[in-house]
Amino acid sequence: MIPAPLFSAQNLVKHFRLKGGLLGSSRGVVRAVDNVSFDLAEGETLGIVGESGCGKSTTARLIVDLISPDAGTITLGGKLLGKHISARELRRQIQMVFQDSYASLNPRLTMEDAIAFGPKVNGMSPQQAARLAHELLERVGLEPRRFAGRYPHELSGGQRQRVNIARALAFSPKIVVLDESVSALDKSVEAQVLNLLADLKAELGLTYVFISHDLNVVRHMSDRVMVMYLGQVAEIGTVEAIYSAPAHPYTAALLSAMPSMDPDRRTMEAPLTGDPPNPINPPAGCRFHTRCKHADTICAAVEPGLFGLPGEGHQVACHIHIPGSNHRNRGVEA
């Protein structure tokens, strides 16, 4: 029997209204997340990739309930958010590490106080919270005697991000959402933080949602990958399936843009041209059809749902793979 997922998001929708019309009326809505569904198994890392504006960060904020969805449900450990589990309890079990390591920390708090703040607010004594902060600093590779009394401006970017990771672990969460958490670091420091994350996952049994624009890093860190385009899921599957046999033309274009040291694999032409359509007024049908070399009549008329492919949980939203779609390239690889 397949075990129940640790976390499940079903049909999540988040639209942001634009103000500025006559007498403060709305000028439309940005469809940041539009009917997104996925599951997380305990102990896995789900990578989320896509161009800027595809909805990755909005999805991350929905996962941790920093913003509320307009529609859809979130379930953690079989408990439905808002019915069987409160937002406060959800946030204790799902923590987030943001991209900007400096803006994430209060400049007036020492590193010890920054890590201890959350536990103290939730009832832990100051002495216990201070001990916990020192333990977590030690765990993320920062000597407490050197770093506990320092302020954010006294640390490097990599050190600050280690503190943010320690702060996220203060509640012993089940899931940690990492939103471009290493993208602002130079490569040597990035490698150290990635190794730290891998070690913490193994030691503590954590589950990660890893959001990044670096496809090589996502490949290294993830068990499964979810590809997003203009607020929707284009493809989801194991790392092996996505990177070796991408089924969606958008996924194939993203992967072909990855830099390679092999001179025989040089990119001679742009794999993808043009900007994504306006999320205020996305195209009908498949949202990628305006940039897709395989686009057919049905692509502009009918929105494809996620269709299961052979392989473990491999799904794609493309008419090429949907039986009975009558796409002219039906069955052709992306």
Rank of each mutant, 00 (worst) to 15 (best):
S104A: 13
S222L: 05
C54D: 07
Y229L: 00
H220E: 00
R139Y: 07
Q315A: 09
C286F: 09
F38A: 13
L185K: 15
P5S: 09
P107Q: 11
G205V: 08
A253M: 09
T290D: 05
S68I: 10
F147Y: 11
G77R: 12
V332Y: 01
R17W: 08
F147W: 03
A129P: 11
L197A: 11
R88L: 09
P271K: 03
C286V: 06
M124V: 14
V302A: 14
N216Y: 01
F16T: 04
C54L: 02
A87K: 05
S8L: 14
A71C: 10
A198D: 15
P276L: 04
A71P: 13
L142V: 02
P246A: 02
A245L: 12
G82D: 04
M268S: 14
L105K: 07
V177D: 15
G231W: 00
A284F: 13
N326Y: 03
D34L: 09
G237D: 04
H319E: 06
E138W: 13
D100C: 13
T45S: 11
H321N: 05
A129E: 04
R167G: 14
L254W: 01
P5A: 04
H314Y: 10
E303R: 08
E44A: 11
T251N: 00
H153S: 07
K293H: 12
V233Y: 01
P259D: 00
E44N: 15
Q93T: 02
S125L: 04
R31I: 01
L215D: 03
D223L: 07
L62V: 08
R219I: 00
N216I: 08
H213F: 00
S222G: 10
S256Q: 11
P263D: 06
A191F: 01
I74A: 13
R162F: 03
Y151E: 05
L109C: 04
R167C: 12
D186N: 05
G77F: 08
I67Y: 07
H15R: 06
L197Q: 12
Y151N: 08
L6F: 07
E51K: 11
S212H: 05
V182I: 12
E180G: 07
I165G: 12
A245R: 13
V13E: 02
V121I: 14
P152A: 05
A247E: 01
V218A: 02
P152R: 06
N278R: 03
R266V: 06
F117G: 11
S325A: 09
R265E: 02
A334Q: 13
N281A: 14
N35H: 15
E154M: 15
N278V: 01
E240W: 00
G285S: 12
V218S: 00
S52I: 01
P249N: 02
G78N: 11
T58W: 00
G331M: 05
H294R: 09
S325Q: 07
L196P: 13
L196I: 03
G285L: 07
G313P: 15
